[in-house]
Design a protein around this nucleic acid. Structure first.
Lengths: 142, 142
DNA sequence: TATTACTTTATAATAGTTCTAAACTAAATG
DNA sequence: CATTTAGTTTAGAACTATTATAAAGTAATA
Protein backbone atom coordinates (compact mmCIF):
# COMPACT_ATOMS: atom_id res chain seq x y z
CA UNK A 1 0.00 0.00 0.00
CA UNK A 2 1.67 3.15 -1.28
CA UNK A 3 -0.51 5.52 0.66
CA UNK A 4 0.36 4.05 4.00
CA UNK A 5 3.04 6.56 4.86
CA UNK A 6 0.69 9.38 3.95
CA UNK A 7 -1.86 8.01 6.42
CA UNK A 8 0.81 7.67 9.08
CA UNK A 9 1.79 11.31 8.72
CA UNK A 10 -1.82 12.48 8.74
CA UNK A 11 -2.24 10.64 12.02
CA UNK A 12 1.03 11.89 13.50
CA UNK A 13 0.24 15.45 12.47
CA UNK A 14 -3.06 15.08 14.28
CA UNK A 15 -1.27 13.96 17.41
CA UNK A 16 -2.30 10.34 17.05
CA UNK A 17 -0.27 7.16 16.91
CA UNK A 18 -0.77 5.06 13.81
CA UNK A 19 -2.67 2.04 14.98
CA UNK A 20 -4.38 -0.70 13.02
CA UNK A 21 -7.81 0.81 13.67
CA UNK A 22 -6.82 4.34 12.73
CA UNK A 23 -5.10 3.20 9.55
CA UNK A 24 -8.28 1.39 8.57
CA UNK A 25 -10.22 4.60 9.10
CA UNK A 26 -7.69 6.46 6.93
CA UNK A 27 -8.04 3.88 4.21
CA UNK A 28 -11.80 4.27 4.16
CA UNK A 29 -11.63 8.06 4.23
CA UNK A 30 -8.64 8.94 2.11
CA UNK A 31 -7.87 6.04 -0.20
CA UNK A 32 -10.25 7.23 -2.92
CA UNK A 33 -10.27 9.07 -6.18
CA UNK A 34 -13.03 11.44 -5.21
CA UNK A 35 -13.78 13.22 -1.96
CA UNK A 36 -17.06 12.42 -0.27
CA UNK A 37 -19.45 13.24 2.55
CA UNK A 38 -20.23 10.98 5.47
CA UNK A 39 -21.72 10.84 8.92
CA UNK A 40 -20.11 9.07 11.86
CA UNK A 41 -22.78 6.46 11.47
CA UNK A 42 -22.05 5.96 7.77
CA UNK A 43 -18.41 5.51 8.55
CA UNK A 44 -18.95 2.96 11.30
CA UNK A 45 -21.35 1.02 9.09
CA UNK A 46 -19.02 1.17 6.12
CA UNK A 47 -16.13 -0.25 8.12
CA UNK A 48 -18.12 -3.01 9.75
CA UNK A 49 -19.87 -4.04 6.53
CA UNK A 50 -17.16 -3.71 3.92
CA UNK A 51 -14.17 -4.69 5.99
CA UNK A 52 -15.80 -7.13 8.32
CA UNK A 53 -14.04 -5.42 11.15
CA UNK A 54 -15.71 -3.62 13.97
CA UNK A 55 -14.00 -0.54 15.32
CA UNK A 56 -15.42 0.85 18.52
CA UNK A 57 -17.50 3.99 18.11
CA UNK A 58 -15.32 5.75 20.66
CA UNK A 59 -12.29 5.25 18.41
CA UNK A 60 -14.16 6.47 15.36
CA UNK A 61 -15.36 9.65 17.08
CA UNK A 62 -11.94 10.22 18.52
CA UNK A 63 -10.12 9.84 15.20
CA UNK A 64 -12.61 11.80 13.12
CA UNK A 65 -12.53 14.68 15.58
CA UNK A 66 -8.75 14.75 15.65
CA UNK A 67 -8.74 14.94 11.84
CA UNK A 68 -11.33 17.65 11.91
CA UNK A 69 -9.41 19.69 14.47
CA UNK A 70 -6.27 19.33 12.39
CA UNK A 71 -8.13 20.32 9.23
CA UNK A 72 -8.02 16.99 7.39
CA UNK A 73 -11.80 16.88 7.49
CA UNK A 74 -14.43 19.59 7.37
CA UNK A 75 -17.72 19.43 9.23
CA UNK A 76 -20.91 20.59 7.54
CA UNK A 77 -23.92 20.99 9.77
CA UNK A 78 -27.25 20.91 8.01
CA UNK A 79 -29.55 21.00 10.99
CA UNK A 80 -29.32 20.17 14.63
CA UNK A 81 -29.77 16.50 13.86
CA UNK A 82 -27.78 16.18 10.64
CA UNK A 83 -24.04 16.66 10.60
CA UNK A 84 -21.77 15.55 7.79
CA UNK A 85 -18.03 15.37 7.41
CA UNK A 86 -16.38 16.18 4.11
CA UNK A 87 -13.04 14.84 2.92
CA UNK A 88 -12.88 17.79 0.52
CA UNK A 89 -11.06 20.36 2.62
CA UNK A 90 -10.69 23.03 -0.03
CA UNK A 91 -12.87 26.13 0.28
CA UNK A 92 -16.19 25.35 -1.30
CA UNK A 93 -19.91 25.60 -0.74
CA UNK A 94 -22.79 23.15 -0.78
CA UNK A 95 -26.18 22.38 -2.16
CA UNK A 96 -28.29 20.32 0.18
CA UNK A 97 -31.07 18.30 -1.38
CA UNK A 98 -33.91 18.16 1.12
CA UNK A 99 -35.67 15.39 -0.81
CA UNK A 100 -32.77 12.96 -0.75
CA UNK A 101 -30.71 14.35 2.16
CA UNK A 102 -27.70 14.49 -0.13
CA UNK A 103 -25.01 17.09 0.08
CA UNK A 104 -23.43 18.28 -3.17
CA UNK A 105 -20.15 20.17 -3.45
CA UNK A 106 -20.14 23.42 -5.38
CA UNK A 107 -17.20 25.08 -7.01
CA UNK A 108 -16.75 28.62 -8.29
CA UNK A 109 -18.72 27.78 -11.41
CA UNK A 110 -21.81 27.24 -9.34
CA UNK A 111 -21.60 29.84 -6.60
CA UNK A 112 -19.68 33.07 -6.98
CA UNK A 113 -17.45 34.59 -4.35
CA UNK A 114 -19.33 35.89 -1.33
CA UNK A 115 -18.80 39.60 -1.01
CA UNK A 116 -18.32 40.66 2.59
CA UNK A 117 -18.65 44.41 2.35
CA UNK A 118 -18.45 45.17 5.98
CA UNK A 119 -17.02 42.98 8.65
CA UNK A 120 -18.93 44.53 11.53
CA UNK A 121 -17.22 42.26 14.02
CA UNK A 122 -13.73 43.58 13.41
CA UNK A 123 -12.48 40.07 14.00
CA UNK A 124 -10.63 37.73 11.71
CA UNK A 125 -12.80 35.66 9.40
CA UNK A 126 -12.14 32.00 9.95
CA UNK A 127 -14.56 30.67 7.36
CA UNK A 128 -17.36 31.59 5.00
CA UNK A 129 -19.89 28.89 4.29
CA UNK A 130 -22.84 28.99 1.95
CA UNK A 131 -25.54 26.36 2.13
CA UNK A 132 -28.15 26.33 -0.62
CA UNK A 133 -31.10 24.13 0.27
CA UNK A 134 -33.01 22.73 -2.68
CA UNK A 135 -36.15 20.66 -3.04
CA UNK A 136 -38.46 19.68 -5.84
CA UNK A 137 -41.28 22.09 -6.51
CA UNK A 138 -43.97 19.76 -5.34
CA UNK A 139 -42.38 18.96 -2.02
CA UNK A 140 -42.79 20.80 1.21
CA UNK A 141 -39.62 22.38 2.41
CA UNK A 142 -39.49 22.58 6.17
CA UNK B 1 -51.98 43.90 26.28
CA UNK B 2 -52.37 45.16 22.75
CA UNK B 3 -50.29 42.44 21.15
CA UNK B 4 -52.38 39.63 22.56
CA UNK B 5 -54.54 39.17 19.49
CA UNK B 6 -51.43 39.06 17.35
CA UNK B 7 -50.09 36.23 19.49
CA UNK B 8 -53.40 34.41 19.29
CA UNK B 9 -53.36 34.52 15.51
CA UNK B 10 -49.73 33.42 15.32
CA UNK B 11 -50.72 30.41 17.40
CA UNK B 12 -53.88 29.68 15.44
CA UNK B 13 -52.01 29.97 12.17
CA UNK B 14 -49.56 27.44 13.49
CA UNK B 15 -52.38 25.07 14.30
CA UNK B 16 -52.16 25.64 18.03
CA UNK B 17 -54.75 26.72 20.56
CA UNK B 18 -53.89 29.83 22.52
CA UNK B 19 -53.17 28.62 26.01
CA UNK B 20 -51.67 30.41 28.97
CA UNK B 21 -48.31 28.70 28.44
CA UNK B 22 -48.14 29.39 24.73
CA UNK B 23 -49.10 33.02 25.18
CA UNK B 24 -46.30 33.40 27.68
CA UNK B 25 -43.88 31.95 25.12
CA UNK B 26 -45.18 34.41 22.54
CA UNK B 27 -44.68 37.27 24.94
CA UNK B 28 -41.08 36.31 25.55
CA UNK B 29 -40.38 35.78 21.85
CA UNK B 30 -42.36 38.46 20.09
CA UNK B 31 -43.09 41.25 22.55
CA UNK B 32 -39.84 43.08 21.84
CA UNK B 33 -38.46 45.94 19.87
CA UNK B 34 -35.61 43.98 18.37
CA UNK B 35 -35.41 40.45 17.07
CA UNK B 36 -33.03 38.10 18.82
CA UNK B 37 -31.43 34.68 18.83
CA UNK B 38 -32.06 31.98 21.40
CA UNK B 39 -31.66 28.31 22.14
CA UNK B 40 -34.43 26.17 23.60
CA UNK B 41 -32.45 26.16 26.80
CA UNK B 42 -32.19 29.96 26.86
CA UNK B 43 -35.91 30.23 26.38
CA UNK B 44 -36.78 27.79 29.15
CA UNK B 45 -34.40 29.53 31.51
CA UNK B 46 -35.67 32.97 30.56
CA UNK B 47 -39.24 31.98 31.31
CA UNK B 48 -38.53 30.28 34.59
CA UNK B 49 -36.21 33.05 35.84
CA UNK B 50 -37.89 36.19 34.64
CA UNK B 51 -41.48 35.12 34.93
CA UNK B 52 -41.24 32.79 37.84
CA UNK B 53 -43.29 30.32 35.91
CA UNK B 54 -42.11 26.96 34.79
CA UNK B 55 -43.35 25.70 31.44
CA UNK B 56 -42.61 22.09 30.69
CA UNK B 57 -39.82 21.53 28.18
CA UNK B 58 -42.15 19.42 26.06
CA UNK B 59 -44.45 22.41 25.63
CA UNK B 60 -41.56 24.69 24.76
CA UNK B 61 -40.19 22.33 22.10
CA UNK B 62 -43.63 21.74 20.75
CA UNK B 63 -44.47 25.43 20.44
CA UNK B 64 -41.11 26.53 19.07
CA UNK B 65 -41.21 23.81 16.44
CA UNK B 66 -44.73 24.69 15.39
CA UNK B 67 -43.61 28.32 14.95
CA UNK B 68 -40.57 27.23 13.04
CA UNK B 69 -42.61 25.00 10.73
CA UNK B 70 -45.02 27.85 10.11
CA UNK B 71 -42.14 30.25 9.45
CA UNK B 72 -42.53 32.49 12.51
CA UNK B 73 -39.06 31.43 13.62
CA UNK B 74 -35.92 30.50 11.69
CA UNK B 75 -33.44 27.90 12.85
CA UNK B 76 -29.72 28.53 12.46
CA UNK B 77 -27.46 25.59 13.03
CA UNK B 78 -23.89 26.45 13.87
CA UNK B 79 -22.54 23.00 14.61
CA UNK B 80 -23.96 19.68 15.58
CA UNK B 81 -24.23 20.79 19.17
CA UNK B 82 -25.29 24.42 18.74
CA UNK B 83 -28.63 25.33 17.28
CA UNK B 84 -30.20 28.74 17.57
CA UNK B 85 -33.60 30.11 16.72
CA UNK B 86 -34.02 33.57 15.29
CA UNK B 87 -37.09 35.76 15.62
CA UNK B 88 -35.86 37.70 12.59
CA UNK B 89 -37.55 35.80 9.77
CA UNK B 90 -36.48 38.07 6.92
CA UNK B 91 -33.81 36.80 4.55
CA UNK B 92 -30.46 37.56 6.09
CA UNK B 93 -27.10 36.06 6.87
CA UNK B 94 -25.02 35.71 10.01
CA UNK B 95 -21.69 36.30 11.58
CA UNK B 96 -20.86 33.80 14.27
CA UNK B 97 -18.34 34.86 16.88
CA UNK B 98 -16.43 31.78 17.93
CA UNK B 99 -14.95 33.53 20.95
CA UNK B 100 -18.26 34.52 22.50
CA UNK B 101 -20.63 32.05 20.80
CA UNK B 102 -22.75 34.99 19.71
CA UNK B 103 -24.68 35.13 16.49
CA UNK B 104 -24.94 38.49 14.72
CA UNK B 105 -27.44 39.33 12.00
CA UNK B 106 -26.13 40.75 8.74
CA UNK B 107 -28.00 42.84 6.27
CA UNK B 108 -27.21 43.70 2.65
CA UNK B 109 -24.72 46.31 3.78
CA UNK B 110 -22.54 43.63 5.26
CA UNK B 111 -22.86 40.71 2.88
CA UNK B 112 -23.72 41.10 -0.78
CA UNK B 113 -26.15 38.94 -2.69
CA UNK B 114 -24.93 35.40 -3.22
CA UNK B 115 -24.57 34.72 -6.91
CA UNK B 116 -25.75 31.25 -7.81
CA UNK B 117 -24.45 30.90 -11.34
CA UNK B 118 -25.41 27.37 -11.91
CA UNK B 119 -28.02 25.43 -10.02
CA UNK B 120 -26.66 22.01 -10.82
CA UNK B 121 -29.49 20.33 -8.97
CA UNK B 122 -32.23 21.60 -11.24
CA UNK B 123 -34.43 21.82 -8.17
CA UNK B 124 -36.11 24.78 -6.58
CA UNK B 125 -33.98 26.74 -4.12
CA UNK B 126 -35.66 26.87 -0.76
CA UNK B 127 -33.04 28.93 1.04
CA UNK B 128 -29.56 30.38 0.76
CA UNK B 129 -27.69 30.79 4.02
CA UNK B 130 -24.28 32.30 4.58
CA UNK B 131 -22.47 31.82 7.85
CA UNK B 132 -19.29 33.80 8.42
CA UNK B 133 -17.33 32.50 11.37
CA UNK B 134 -15.08 35.03 13.06
CA UNK B 135 -12.59 34.88 15.90
CA UNK B 136 -9.91 37.12 17.29
CA UNK B 137 -6.52 36.74 15.70
CA UNK B 138 -4.90 35.34 18.77
CA UNK B 139 -7.48 32.65 19.35
CA UNK B 140 -7.56 29.21 17.93
CA UNK B 141 -10.49 28.60 15.67
CA UNK B 142 -11.58 25.01 15.75
C1' DT C 1 -73.38 22.96 31.17
C1' DA C 2 -71.74 18.77 28.94
C1' DT C 3 -69.04 16.83 25.64
C1' DT C 4 -65.20 16.57 22.77
C1' DA C 5 -60.76 17.47 21.22
C1' DC C 6 -56.63 19.35 22.23
C1' DT C 7 -52.94 20.52 25.77
C1' DT C 8 -49.81 20.27 29.66
C1' DT C 9 -47.02 17.87 32.44
C1' DA C 10 -43.78 14.67 34.58
C1' DT C 11 -41.54 11.06 33.33
C1' DA C 12 -39.88 7.43 30.25
C1' DA C 13 -37.67 6.46 26.05
C1' DT C 14 -34.47 7.29 22.49
C1' DA C 15 -30.39 8.89 19.97
C1' DG C 16 -26.10 10.76 19.60
C1' DT C 17 -21.98 11.63 21.80
C1' DT C 18 -18.52 11.61 25.49
C1' DC C 19 -16.48 9.39 29.58
C1' DT C 20 -14.25 5.62 32.10
C1' DA C 21 -11.21 2.23 33.45
C1' DA C 22 -9.36 -2.17 32.45
C1' DA C 23 -6.88 -4.74 28.99
C1' DC C 24 -3.87 -3.90 25.24
C1' DT C 25 -0.17 -2.00 22.05
C1' DA C 26 3.26 1.26 20.17
C1' DA C 27 7.30 3.72 21.25
C1' DA C 28 11.21 4.70 24.03
C1' DT C 29 14.77 3.00 27.01
C1' DG C 30 18.61 0.34 28.72
C1' DC D 1 15.42 -7.51 22.66
C1' DA D 2 13.28 -7.15 27.26
C1' DT D 3 11.33 -3.68 29.89
C1' DT D 4 9.06 0.35 30.88
C1' DT D 5 6.16 4.10 29.76
C1' DA D 6 2.72 6.50 27.52
C1' DG D 7 -0.85 6.30 24.58
C1' DT D 8 -4.92 3.35 22.71
C1' DT D 9 -8.97 0.34 22.28
C1' DT D 10 -13.00 -1.28 23.94
C1' DA D 11 -17.52 -2.22 26.07
C1' DG D 12 -20.38 -0.24 28.57
C1' DA D 13 -21.82 3.58 31.65
C1' DA D 14 -23.02 8.33 31.72
C1' DC D 15 -24.66 12.31 29.82
C1' DT D 16 -27.33 15.62 26.87
C1' DA D 17 -30.75 16.92 23.86
C1' DT D 18 -34.90 15.76 22.07
C1' DT D 19 -39.19 13.14 21.40
C1' DA D 20 -42.90 10.03 23.03
C1' DT D 21 -46.44 8.70 26.45
C1' DA D 22 -50.45 8.76 29.03
C1' DA D 23 -52.95 10.73 32.80
C1' DA D 24 -54.94 15.03 34.42
C1' DG D 25 -56.36 19.46 32.89
C1' DT D 26 -58.35 23.12 29.76
C1' DA D 27 -60.31 25.33 25.55
C1' DA D 28 -63.81 25.02 22.17
C1' DT D 29 -68.25 23.54 20.77
C1' DA D 30 -72.87 22.09 21.03
Amino acid sequence: MLKNSEFVSKLRNSGLRPTKQRLKICEVLFNRDKTFHFTINDLAKNISENFNEKISLATIYNTVHAFKDKGYLKEITISSDKSYFDTNITKHHHFYDEDTNLLIDCNDNEIGKVNIKNNITGKKISSVEVLVRVASDTQNQD
